[in-house]
């Protein structure tokens, strides 16, 4: 169920829809593709109203989460099938397939069936099937979610390279904010069928429009404190009158002699950084990350201050207040 979506995606842009499961990001993508129809509203592609146009006539190509390759066809036939349906000359089909195969390095897999391919190879074929159509845009529905962590990182880089090379519009759905941050020109954050914020990755990170976006983008997630709890970081008198909640990212707390007192529950030493889980006297849980190796032991009392200008302030509705 989508509500009041008003969104424009620019030509050649890499747009990422991100949000928790059930937020409507896949629904929105499917409505753009034409596989689902909106109950009201309008969808335009290249200035043409396509709201009632069938999926095949809209122009964009889709890459499915499950890849949706035809299991009984070879890779070559999978790539050729849609082009044959459009009565494209054989020579043209062959040259497009050869070009896509070269680009994705799947030339040696042409006579295999999907069951004989690894997850990463299937993913390439699925992308290849979209590329050969020479679409107006690529719609990618969580394309990396079925891959293992290592492969996901390398495919992510390849997708970014592919976008730079094709200069095509790409709309990418994911629940993984790291994918969103690394790939996107602009990120669309959705929740409950509504858009929470549309912005570049850095703007989302530095100036989240509301408490939800602030908590969703960034890992570990932002700490939220009441005005009283935040007094050790910034006196209430320095905050805007409407302020109800103060947010501070784990990276923006620095150790100090005095300031906010945190009792350490757990310290995770990752080598390059240390993640300290702790709680305030009020019981509120906090996370602090510091570069390097910071000695901290459970039960120990540590003090932190906020880096200047890094506090985020929200009103009673959770909307950001600039100050």
């Amino acid at each position: 169920m989508l509500k009041g979506i008003d969104l424009e995606i620019n030509e050649g842009e890499f747009a990422v829809f991100v949000g928790p499961s059930g937020c409507g990001k896949s629904t929105l993508l499917r409505q753009i593709s034409g596989l689902d129809r909106p109950s009201s509203g309008r969808i335009e592609i290249d200035g043409r109203d396509v709201t009632t146009v069938g999926a095949a006539d809209r122009g964009p190509a889709m890459v499915f989460q499950s890849y949706a390759l035809y299991p009984h066809m070879t890779v070559r036939d999978n790539l050729a099938f849609g082009l044959q349906n459009n009565k494209m000359p054989k020579a043209e089909i062959a040259s497009r397939i050869a070009e896509a195969a070269r680009m994705l390095e799947i030339g040696h897999l042409m006579d295999r069936r999907p069951a004989q391919l690894s997850g990463g190879q299937r993913q390439r074929v699925a992308i290849g099937r979209a590329i050969v159509r020479d679409p107006t845009a690529f719609l990618l529905d969580e394309p990396l979610s079925n891959l293992d962590a290592e492969l996901r990182v390398s495919m992510r880089a390849e997708l970014a390279a592919l976008h730079a090379r094709l200069k095509a519009t790409m709309i990418y759905v994911t629940h993984d904010q790291v994918e969103a941050m690394t790939l996107a020109d602009r990120i669309v954050v959705l929740r409950g069928g509504q858009i929470e914020q549309v912005a570049t990755p850095m703007e989302l990170f530095n100036r989240p429009a509301n408490r939800f976006v602030a908590g969703f983008i960034g890992a570990p997630r932002m700490n939220f404190l009441s005005i009283d709890e935040a007094a050790a970081l910034l006196p209430a008198s320095a905050l805007p009158a409407a302020a109800e909640m103060v947010g501070i990212r784990p990276q923006n707390l620095r150790p100090a002699e005095s300031g906010m007192a945190l009792t350490v529950d757990l310290a995770e030493a990752l080598g390059t950084e240390t993640v300290i889980h702790g709680h305030l006297a009020s019981g509120t849980k906090m996370i602090v990350t510091r570069a390097g190796q910071l000695p901290a032991h459970p039960g120990e009392l540590l003090h932190f201050t906020a880096e200047p200008g890094k506090l985020h302030v929200f009103d009673a509705e959770g909307v950001r207040i600039d100050f």
């Binding site: 593709s33 596989l35 999926a55 095949a56 949706a68 390759l69 035809y70 099938f81 849609g82």
Partner: peptide
């Protein structure tokens, strides 16, 4: 759905 997008 893939077939639909492939105009089958």
């Amino acid at each position: 759905e893939a077939a639909e997008l492939d105009r089958t």
